[in-house]
Every structure is written in C-alpha cells, then in structure tokens.
C-alpha cells in the first residue's frame, strides 16, 4: 500500500447485500469536485444527480447542518457538508422540508443568504445520504467508489453481526486480493479509503 496515494478497497458482495453498506453513507463520504457551484449545481452537475430527482424526491437538504429552502442560491465551499433526505414523517419532517409550510418553525437553523464560493481548484465536500435517498442513489455511488475515512470503515466492519463475512465474495486493495474478514485489520485507520462495491454474479454451480 502506497503511503501517499489513497488506497482503493474493492469488495465483491453477494447479490442483494449491497444495502448492508448503505448506513455508511449516512455518516458521510468525501467528494472532490471543482469549486464555484450552488448546492443544486454541485449535486446535479458534479455528482450526477438528476435535477427532477433533487426537486421532487429529495425533500430536505442541509448545508453545514442548516436546512436549505433555495438550492440554487446556497453556495458550496471547501469543507462543506451536504446532507440529503427524502420526505420525513411527523412535524419535524414537515418543518425541515425545503420551502415547506412549517419552515418558519425552524428559522434559527435555516440557511440564510447565498454565501459565496470562489471558482477555481477542487473542493472537498462531505455528502451524507439518508433513508430512501441512500437506498436509491447509494448503490450508484458505492459502485462508482466513495471516499470514506478508514477509521469509520473499520468501525463499521467490527460492529457487524457474526455471519457478515458470508456476504463477501472477494476483496482486494489496489488490486491485491485480501481476506474479506480481515479487511478492518488491513485498511489504514488514519486515512481516506476509496471504497468500491461490486455485486457478485450468480454463484457458480
């Protein structure tokens, strides 16, 4: 494992078990893209999320922990955190909705003003995907590969029940095969890891 470059961990898992990794996306993963974009621009152009999906399915958006009502106005900066959720139940769900009828009830945690963003070099942004958004967008991100802190990944593996290893068909780090069960011992805990998942084909035989 090169000490300088980001290690790429590729896991091949049994069909249907990719969802087991979705809670990881709620903790956040890092995306590096060019600067100078609104939240809407960043998510649609840089991350490839369809505009209609963002407008209709994604009902609550946070920028640095503050609920956004106008995605086209709020700007993304280096170190920003964006979190996406589908419609949520209860009063809290209604209150946190973008432009919802109860937005006044959380005005102290609403994102105020557009802020600014300098165009230029790449920015690192943390994306968090919650609930149905994770279920729908998560597999695409996981297959493409997401940057996750090694310590988070180690902790995730160690918390799983016995038998979790059975969903692993293969694992490699930078192309070098490793034992799926030993992944948490092998990956570095102090660096970002590029995690990519592959659904396995039908089991031979």
């Amino acid at each position: 494992m090169d000490a300088e470059t980001t290690p790429r961990l590729t896991l091949t898992v049994t069909p249907g078990s990719l969802s087991r990794f979705l809670p990881l996306l709620g903790q956040g993963f890092t995306v590096q893209r060019p600067a100078g974009a609104s939240v809407e621009g960043f998510l649609c152009r840089a991350c490839g999320i369809a505009r209609d999906y963002l407008r209709e399915r994604v009902q609550t958006v946070f920028l640095n922990g503050k609920a956004i009502d106008d995605l086209a106005a709020a700007m993304v900066n280096d170190g920003s955190t964006i979190a996406l959720s589908a419609a949520m139940p209860g009063l809290a769900g209604a209150v946190l909705r973008k432009g919802g009828a109860y937005a006044a009830m959380r005005r102290q945690i609403s994102h105020a003003g557009p802020g600014d963003s300098r165009a230029g070099g790449p920015v690192s942004v943390t994306i968090k995907l919650f609930n149905l958004v994770a279920r729908e967008l998560g597999p695409g991100f996981l297959e493409q590969g997401v940057l996750i802190h090694g310590a988070s990944l180690q902790d995730f593996f160690r918390r799983q029940d016995r038998g979790f290893g059975k969903i692993g068909r293969a694992a490699d780090i930078d192309g070098r095969p490793v034992d799926f069960e030993k992944v948490p011992e092998i990956i570095p805990g102090n660096r970002l890891v590029l995690l990519a998942l592959r659904p396995a084909g039908p089991h031979p035989g």
């Binding site: 709620g26 399915r57 009902q59 609550t60 946070f62 922990g65 503050k66 609920a67 979190a83 959720s85 589908a86 419609a87 949520m88 139940p89 209860g90 809290a92 769900g93 946190l96 959380r106 945690i109 968090k128 919650f130 609930n131 149905l132 279920r135």
Partner: peptide
Amino acid sequence: AVTGQGLPTYGTNVLTNVINEAG
C-alpha cells in the same frame, strides 16, 4: 412518499440522522 415508503421501510427511527444533522 412518507406513508407509502419512508415509514414502512425504516419506521419512525428514520428521523435520527435527519434531526441529528439539523443539530
């Protein structure tokens, strides 16, 4: 989306991540 998908899939605890994110 809430009564037909969100609640059946996750239950009310679906709120944890969201309320936490809101601080």
